[in-house]
Every structure is written in structure tokens, then in C-alpha cells.
Computed example of a mutant assay.
Amino acid sequence: MTEFEVPVLSVRNLHKQYGPGCEHCRDEQSATLVKNHCQVCGTVYACRNVSFDVFPGEVLGIVGESGSGKSTLMQCLYFDQEVTSGEAFVSAFENGEENLFEQSSQQQRYIRNHIMGKVYQNPLLGLRMNFSSIGNIAEKLIAAGSRDVGMMENRGAELLNKVNIPVHRRKEAPKNFSGGMQQRVQIAKALSNNPPLLLLDEVTTGLDLSVQASVLDLIKGLQRELNISMVLVSHDLGVIRMLADRTLVMLDGMVIEQGLTDQILEDPQHRYTQQLVHSLL
């Protein structure tokens, strides 16, 4: 197996439920769920045995309507939530042999600070709004063990330049910025430690169309330049079409279809995917 065939990230049977489950919903084969919700005990099955791989330099798109489980999946991958069960392995941690979900909180912090970056839909979750932009980047570098102030200033300036934040606004707090600029600062912060894997959760939702386009162009350019692997979640197939090499389609917590993005868009097999694609045309 060559290095390009070894996945950067492997996820196996990731399962996340809210509630204890009951005899009516625990058995997947006979479960009487409405969408992903048990009418008897109220348990919600946000992610149901989701499995996928992400390869070096690949952008994996995950698409689905609100409530399909895609954002919960991203929260689990970045340890913002605990999984109910399942496994995840990254090649940059313990040779890809240790389940991330079974690591101590200290190890999970290490993985967040060195191996993954995340850009949240809501910049309030990814940035300290009262810190300067360059201070936000320094915070991530300090969390990863950096103590060299000069290096952090240089790295922050380099990244903010890369994401087109004007020089005279580097010391300004993101609370003064537009939504598109806040997302750019988040992207710079997420990239600060050269992570092999970047998680992008609905990063253009709520932005004006022209701003969306510039953020997407930025992501596309950075991905090509850095050859970084990305998991990109969106409910917008236009975003997925522009950026993703392969795509998973989620519905009610499950992956219902996956394949090359072109193949999914040109010849969707599942009825729900067909509706999604039709709505884009």
C-alpha cells in the first residue's frame, strides 16, 4: 500500500444518540423511528453507524438537510461531543492504530491542537471575539506548545495575509469584522499548526453570495496550495460541487449514498439524492 492509499482519517460505525433508547428503537432492523426519532422513548439517533475514509489531499463533502446528522458528526470528530460508540483513526496519531474516541481528554486536546483544525459555522464558537485577529492565531499556537513570540507574530501575519485580512486590521478584534472576514480569521487560526486535516462545518451559511464565493475561492486555493485533506459539511450542493472530490449524502443520521461528487450529481441513485440534485438544477 502506498502512502497515498493510507487514509488520513478513517471513521467506523460512528454512532451518536440522545436518550437511552428502548425496546422499540434499539434494534436497528425493527426500529420504529419517525425520521431518526423514537416516538415511544423520545431518543434521537443523530448519527447511525457512519463510516468513511478521507485520503491525503482529498476533500470529502458531506451533504444533507438540517437534522440529517452532519454537524453532529463534525462535533464528534473534533471532540466537541462524545460519541455513543464507534471508532476513528488518523494516520498522524499513533500510526493510525489508536481509536481517537478512547483517548484521554489530554490526548484529545493534543489531536485538536496539532492534527486537526476546525472552522465552525458560527464564528463565535471558533474565535475569541475580543482578542485581536493575530492573537487568535497565537492562542492556537500557544495551545500547541509554542512560546516564541516572534515566531507567532510572523506566523500570524503570514496566515492573515494568506486569507486576505488587510495588514492594518491584524490587531483588530474579530467582533468588528464582517461575517466573511470572521470566517477568514477562523480559517487562518485553523491552519496555524499545519494540520493534515481540516474540518469545515457550513462555513458559508448566512453569508452574502459574493462573500460566499470569495470564501470558497479562498478554501479551494488553500487546499491546492497546501494539499491538505478536508471534510466539508454543507446543505448546499453548489458548495459541494465546487470543492468536494467525493461526497457522502446523509439523511436521518445515516449515510444513504456515497461516491465521486460528479457521479452523485450526474447519476444519483437514492430518491432523496435525486430530489436534492433536482432542486439544484
Rank of each mutant, 00 (worst) to 15 (best):
Y78W: 06
E28K: 00
L232S: 00
L222I: 15
V249Q: 03
A144P: 09
A244T: 14
S133L: 10
V63P: 04
Q103E: 14
E266K: 13
K70S: 04
A143S: 14
L73A: 00
M250I: 04
G156Q: 12
N13P: 01
G42R: 01
G57N: 03
A173L: 05
P174G: 09
R246S: 08
S214Y: 08
S279D: 13
K162P: 03
G238A: 14
T43Y: 06
V277H: 05
C38M: 05
G253A: 01
T205L: 04
V6P: 03
T72C: 01
R246G: 07
R147V: 07
Q182T: 14
R246Y: 04
H278W: 13
S68I: 01
G67K: 00
L200N: 01
K140P: 12
S229G: 07
D201S: 02
L60N: 01
L281Q: 15
L281H: 15
S85K: 12
E266Q: 15
L160E: 02
L160G: 08
I137F: 05
L280M: 15
R128I: 15
T261R: 00
H168M: 10
V6Y: 06
F177M: 13
S91P: 14
A92E: 15
M74E: 08
V59Y: 03
L73S: 03
P20R: 12
T273N: 09
E98H: 12
S178Q: 06
R246P: 10
I165P: 06
I134T: 15
G180D: 03
A92H: 15
H24C: 00
R224S: 13
D148Q: 07
R147C: 02
L127N: 03
Q212S: 10
V249K: 03
I240W: 06
N130C: 11
S146C: 11
V255K: 10
G150D: 14
H278G: 13
N176K: 12
I137L: 14
G42S: 01
V63W: 02
D208C: 00
R128A: 13
S146A: 11
A244E: 08
L198M: 07
D262L: 09
M250W: 02
L232I: 12
L127D: 01
N99M: 10
R26D: 13
V185H: 02
E23M: 08
E94V: 12
A92W: 10
A31E: 07
S214W: 12
I240C: 13
S234T: 15
G117W: 09
P174R: 08
I111C: 03
S133N: 13
E225T: 15
G135K: 03
V8C: 00
V277M: 06
Q29C: 01
V40A: 00
S234Q: 14
H235P: 09
R128G: 11
G57I: 04
M116D: 05
C41S: 07
G145M: 04
K118D: 02
D245N: 10
C76E: 00
Q103G: 09
L207N: 09
G180L: 06
A143C: 13
A46E: 01
S10A: 08
V231I: 10
V211E: 00
D148S: 13
A157S: 13
E158W: 08
L125A: 07
M1A: 12
G19N: 11
G21V: 12
V231D: 06
L280W: 06
V239F: 07
D245W: 06
V119N: 10
K162H: 11
